[in-house]
Write a protein that binds this DNA or RNA. Structure first.
Length: 577
RNA sequence: GCGCUCUUAGCUCAGCUGGAUAGAGCAUCGGUUUUCUAAACCGAGGGUCGGUGGUUCGAGUCCACCAGAGCGCACCA
């Protein structure tokens, strides 16, 4: 039940009627008209800008139009307490107390689906996220995008869409060869006491490779590790598989489960790259040419080479992109073209890619490919998660690939916990860099917004416990004749915002709106709770040791929204803290 | 040189696709526990929304230019 949408519909019907009568002009599109939350210093519940939007086409001042509208609106709705016109031309409406009885009844009767955006057309989504190279465990840098992708998916699922969470495994190419070589040398180190060539900067130095090497030695007694070339094929498979084991366990510790892992090697071996490039060729978007050196770069080392290029400039990219290396093998980009063609073949309505900030430059070319292949500009949406700045003891903390001194997801979770990690990573817009201060998050865990929201839920649970009720059970209430006070209505108004929050989060793929909203709601609740100290009528449990029905549904509805929100964010709502 | 993202209180950030007197937390100062969880609450101070123009009834929000920060810019993945 979205009270803002319901009222917007009412107003649209009204002005259309007036337009039919000939007493009002309306613009072609009614898109600008909205019903919104008024600023808190106005004593009203909802507010609309209709009069201001209609002002132009009617050549009248917004105030005049508003004044003629308010009587008509009031006549049609006996739930209105006051309706008034304010300065630039807003119409402000305050409902009678009884309005909120109907509201809370409605919310309670379909608790689980409260907030679901019924206006959204049901779609099939594919959300690709993480897709870190299978060359070792996940580190903190992967964490934000992982959580972002997971929760974006959760929001879409909450809104009843069909969502598939997918991981693209880059198990092909030079990096994988280097990785496998590194494993090979670690194996020789263990078996033949041969020193690992640490000076070779192409190799992966991390300690986790020793464990991978041990696992491979233990689980296999066929392979001989004399020459890399002899075992490279089998060893690659084993090494990648060990890596994926680590990654999947990291993801599971973060509370993330992907529906599908797609392997780049499979795509390449299936000849899908050639097929996809052929499709682009048919559209005359592939040609053989040379890329010019970027200005300002050092031109001396630049070698112009004839190679196969994709005309991404046709779609707004800065330059055309190479599909083939000079040795005629495919580039990474080419196999990604194939992968996206593969996605398109699976008939999704919308593809979503979650990328790290360091891959933002990649967006234009890949959206160009999807547009070229599907003919639909909006088929692929790329969402970038900005960097996480790690801070330890007040100082920035840099990770070094060469030394292999990563902070892993494992370290992070064991230090601050899964829920705190998820909540804090989401509490900011993905467009801005995020400060993640280890010492702060750990030391000041009491100031952590996660606990603030959880505490709210725990407080409500404790009230239920006191009268032997369970917070999770449905409430069956027949009579909704209540008289909520101003302080309670303030919270009910916040509850009424929940569907709006979900709508914005889903439409714009901005999960941070959910923790931000939950924090605000919790704040209203804690404030109300403390009023009970001075004013016994604000306590939930009365002198007969019972909770009256008005307070009971009130609590139920609040806890339900918190639960829904926390489920989407993917964190626990403990009943005791 | 080019592209992407950002710039809001001392610090970290919200600001619902252009609306009304721009909001939180932290930090600082001062208060609140015989009562359902004080991991909480109440109060005070703190702002030229990076700058300059433009678009319009109306701009933190849209456009242009400028300044600053981060990320990226070949056949790596």
């Amino acid at each position: 039940m979205n009270i803002f949408d319901l009222y917007l519909d009412k107003i649209i019907i009204l002005i259309k009627k007036l337009n039919k009568d000939g007493s009002l002009e309306i613009p072609e599109t009614l898109k600008g008209i909205n019903v919104d939350i008024p600023p808190s210093n106005f004593d009203c519940d909802i507010s609309t800008n209709v009069a201001m939007v209609l002002s132009k086409v009617n050549k009248k001042s917004p105030i005049d139009i508003a004044n003629t509208l308010i009587d008509l609106i009031k006549n049609e709705d006996e739930k209105i307490e006051t309706i008034s016109v304010v300065k630039p031309g807003f119409i402000n409406i305050k409902f009678k107390q009884t309005y909120w009885n109907n509201f809370i009844k409605n919310v309670n009767q379909n608790c689980k689906d409260f907030g679901v955006n019924i206006k959204e057309k049901k779609q099939k989504y594919l959300v690709e996220f993480v897709s870190a190279n299978p060359t070792g465990p996940l580190h903190v840098g992967h964490c934000r995008g992982a959580i972002l992708g997971d929760v974006i998916s959760n929001i879409l699922i909450f809104n009843k869409h069909d969502v598939s969470k997918e991981y693209y495994v880059n198990d092909y190419g030079n990096q994988i060869i280097n990785f496998t070589k590194s494993v090979f040398f670690r194996i020789r180190e263990i078996l033949f006491n041969e020193k690992f060539p640490i000076e070779n900067s192409d190799l992966y130095p991390g300690d986790y490779l020793v464990d991978i090497a041990k696992n491979i030695i233990e689980s296999n007694n066929v392979l001989k590790f004399d020459k890399f070339e002899d075992v490279s094929k089998e060893l690659t498979l084993l090494s990648v598989s060990e890596s994926l084991k680590l990654i999947k366990s990291n993801l599971s510790n973060l509370g993330i489960v992907h529906d599908k892992f797609t392997s780049e090697t499979d795509i390449v071996l299936n000849n899908e790259v050639q097929k996809a490039i052929d499709k682009l060729m048919d559209k005359k978007l592939v040609y053989s040419g040379k890329i010019k050196a970027p200005k300002g770069e050092d031109d001396q080392n630049w070698v112009e080479r004839e190679q196969l290029l994709f005309k991404s400039t046709d779609f707004g990219d800065d330059k055309d992109r190479a599909l083939q290396k000079s040795d005629k093998s495919w580039t990474y980009f080419a196999s990604d073209v194939a992968y996206h063609d593969n996605k398109l073949d699976r008939n999704y309505d919308t593809l979503i890619n979650i990328l790290g900030a360091d891959h933002a430059g990649y967006i234009k070319r890949i959206t160009a490919v999807v547009e070229a292949l599907s003919g639909d500009k909006k088929k692929l949406i790329c969402k970038v998660s900005q960097l996480v700045k790690l801070i330890k003891d007040g100082k920035p903390f840099k990770m070094s690939k060469r030394k292999g001194d990563y902070i892993t997801v494992e370290d992070l979770i064991s230090e601050v916990g899964r829920d705190a990690t998820r909540f804090i990573m989401l509490n900011r817009s993905s467009d801005v860099e995020l400060d993640f201060d280890f010492t702060k998050v750990k030391e000041k865990s009491k100031d952590n917004p996660l606990y603030y929201v959880q505490y709210c839920y725990a407080r409500i649970s404790s009230v239920f416990r006191h009268v032997d009720l369970n917070i999770g059970n449905d409430l069956d209430i027949k009579d909704y004749e209540f008289e909520y006070t101003e302080d309670e209505i303030r919270i009910l108004k916040k509850i009424a915002e929940w569907p709006k929050c979900i709508e914005a989060a889903s439409l714009r793929l901005e999960p941070h709106r959910i923790p931000v909203y939950l924090y605000e709601l919790s704040s209203e609740f804690h404030s109300y709770w403390n009023m009970g100290k001075d004013d016994p009528s604000k306590r939930f449990i009365n002198e007969q040791k019972k909770i009256p029905n008005d307070k009971l549904v009130f609590l139920k509805v609040i806890s339900n929204v918190i639960k829904s929100g926390m489920d989407i964010v993917g964190v626990e709502t403990p009943q005791k803290m």
